[in-house]
Simulated scan of single mutants.
Amino acid sequence: MQQLQFEASWNKALATQDRHTIEKIFTETKQPNSSCILCSPIRQAINHKQELLVTVLVHNFTDQPLTFNKTRIVYRMQDEVIADEKFTLPTLIIPPQVSLPWTFIFPSLSYSPLASFENGRLEIL
């Protein structure tokens, strides 16, 4: 049975409204289509450093922990790759059958500038 978890710093800092939004997305997307990794979008933004922030709910529907060691992650819009980066996140381990929200930060040179980044999808390759 899929469970929703929050990383410790998220658990402390997350606003009530954001927590409700994530819980709603989890309820709507927690049923796996297969035993794989899926990302449900939460929000996208550009920060003051011109980095692309993509916040998703990462669903680990597999029986293995999900780790990030030079893991290629792409952000697509209508099948076009908009952002592409390799992530090494030693402290991020998503246990089997767990969904966890996370923000992936794409440096300014790793994505194509657009007017809007809405309605894209993040893929962990």
Rank of each mutant, 00 (worst) to 15 (best):
P95R: 02
Q50R: 15
I94L: 03
L38C: 13
Q97P: 07
Q50M: 13
T67I: 13
R76N: 12
T71P: 07
H59G: 05
P107C: 07
A45I: 01
V81C: 06
L53I: 08
I82M: 04
V98T: 10
I46Q: 00
N60A: 15
L109K: 13
D63E: 15
N69R: 03
E85A: 13
S112Y: 14
S112V: 14
R43T: 08
L89Q: 06
P65K: 08
F106I: 07
Y75M: 02
V54L: 12
H59M: 12
L92E: 08
I82C: 01
N33P: 04
L92H: 04
L100Y: 02
Q44G: 06
D84P: 11
S112L: 15
V81R: 04
L53S: 04
L66G: 03
S34Q: 11
S110I: 06
K70N: 15
D79W: 05
Q97K: 14
E80I: 13
I73V: 15
Q64N: 14
S110M: 05
T71S: 03
W102N: 09
K70A: 11
T91R: 04
E85I: 04
R72F: 00
F87T: 12
F68P: 03
R43E: 13
C36M: 12
R72C: 11
S34H: 14
D84M: 13
T91E: 12
T103M: 10
L38V: 14
E51Q: 15
I73R: 08
F87P: 07
F68I: 00
F87K: 05
L100E: 14
P101A: 06
N69C: 06
N47R: 03
Q44E: 06
D63R: 06
T55I: 00
Q64V: 05
P41K: 08
I82L: 10
L38G: 05
K86V: 02
V56T: 10
V74P: 02
N69Q: 12
N60W: 03
T88W: 01
N60Y: 12
L38S: 14
A45C: 02
K49P: 01
Q64T: 15
D79C: 13
I42E: 03
I46A: 02
V98F: 00
W102R: 02
P107I: 14
L100K: 10
F61Q: 08
M77Y: 09
L89M: 14
L53G: 02
V56K: 05
T62W: 06
T88M: 10
V54K: 08
P95M: 00
Q64I: 01
F68D: 02
P107Q: 13
E80G: 07
M77I: 15
N69K: 11
V98D: 01
R72E: 09
S112W: 14
C39D: 02
D63C: 05
N47V: 08
I94D: 09
M77G: 03
L66Q: 01
T91L: 11
I73C: 13
M77D: 10
P41Q: 04
L109I: 09
K49Y: 10
N33V: 01
A45V: 00
E80Y: 01
Y111G: 07
I93E: 05
N47L: 01
D79Y: 07
L38K: 06
S34R: 14
V54N: 12
V54Y: 03
P90N: 09
H48C: 11
L92R: 00
N47K: 07
N60V: 11
